[in-house]
């Protein structure tokens, strides 16, 4: 690890001022479970770390009639086990519990999970000056790309590694960001950007800006949600593919659907084509198969990840069938 100075911020004003002072050469630290390995492998070499853990209130979970607000410092363990979150936003709780290992979920925070850098082994290896690090080439496009994108990866075929991001995007969550210029709110879906927009960074955060909290509105009555993740190793691993599905039913009819994929694109990947197949209909096997096929239309697998197409289609089908069955069970 390179040497750095460590500053513990007492307030958000303090934190953004500390970021601004050495703009671009500072990183915020919360759980540190992604940042510290990045520093150890030489892909992040900040001159200063700004620790957010001393800022009061950023670890708050607030549940109101309108929805769920989570501070950026809420640990993944708490999201996974919180009875209120499991009740109101099951896909999020399941996503948090599917992330990493118990020790990492104890340290890791919501903000860190959403802002973590990709796992691409070329990106994580300091010897490869890839496009994401300012180079001119994406080595994975023609190289070892078993774990890479099947959607949206033309310029840089990383996949977004977060398990909470697909769930929160499916819940139509909104992010609150804070910089020296003030506060802004954006739909979480617009927080993440494709490499074609910014190949160097996976989200819209400015270098002196912090993700402060996320708000997920309460779902309408009759909503069923889940997060389904497939990993190569059962104990703990990143997703080969995952799907967050949030369906609202009135009687047997699906009136609203949000399907967002993880592990297959550089951002949480929404599936509007699949959603529109479902809305307005009672679900049966044929319609569910039709929707999961629609979700994978336009997939562009690379030389070693063609398996992700059928895998993803399969987990969408499984998730939708389970949600439909759970609706019938109530």
């Amino acid at each position: 690890m390179n040497p750095f100075e460590y500053a513990s911020a007492d307030s958000l004003d303090d934190a953004v001022a500390l970021l601004r002072e050495k703009k671009g050469r500072v990183r915020v630290i919360a759980g540190g479970t992604d940042l510290i390995p990045q520093m150890k492998s030489g892909v992040a070499e900040p001159e200063r770390l700004v620790d957010l853990k001393g800022i009061p209130g950023l670890d708050r979970v607030e549940i109101s009639a309108g929805g769920l607000r989570l501070g950026t410092l809420v640990p993944l363990t708490e999201i996974a086990s919180h009875p209120g979150i499991r009740e109101s936003h099951a896909a999020l709780a399941q996503g948090a519990s599917a992330a990493a290992s118990p020790q990492i979920r104890n340290a890791g925070t919501l903000g860190g999970n959403l802002c973590q850098r990709p796992r691409c082994w070329y990106f994580r290896n300091e010897d490869f000056h890839c496009r994401k690090k300012g180079g001119s080439e994406c080595f994975a496009l023609e190289g070892e790309n078993k774990y890479h994108a099947i959607f949206g990866g033309d310029d840089c075929c990383i996949v977004h590694p977060s398990d909470t991001a697909p769930a929160l995007v499916a819940c139509e969550a909104e992010a609150t960001l804070r910089s020296p210029r003030g506060e802004r709110r954006v739909p979480l879906a617009d927080f993440f950007v494709l490499p074609s927009v910014d190949v160097r960074w996976e989200n819209i955060l400015a270098k002196d800006e912090i993700l402060v909290s996320v708000f997920a509105p309460s779902p309408p009555p009759g909503t069923r949600a889940s997060y389904t993740k497939i990993r190569e190793r059962a104990s703990f691993d990143f997703a080969l593919a995952s799907v967050a599905a949030v369906l609202t039913f009135e009687g047997a009819t699906c009136t609203r659907a949000r399907i967002v994929l993880g592990g297959v694109a550089p951002i949480p990947w929404p599936c509007p084509a699949a959603e529109s197949v479902l809305v307005g209909h009672a679900l049966d096997d044929a319609l569910i198969a039709h929707a999961s096929n629609a979700a994978l239309e336009g997939a562009a697998p690379l030389s070693k990840n063609r398996y992700k197409v059928s895998l993803t289609r399969g987990i969408i089908r499984r998730a939708l069938a389970n949600l439909n069955a759970s609706k019938e069970g109530t």
């Binding site: 040497p3 750095f4 100075e5 460590y6 500053a7 513990s8 911020a9 007492d10 307030s11 303090d14 001022a17 500390l18 002072e21 001159e47 200063r48 700004v50």
Partner: peptide, 8 residues
């Protein structure tokens, strides 16, 4: 800046 800066 109110924060206590330590190091490097």
């Amino acid at each position: 800046l109110m924060a206590n800066i330590l190091g490097p």
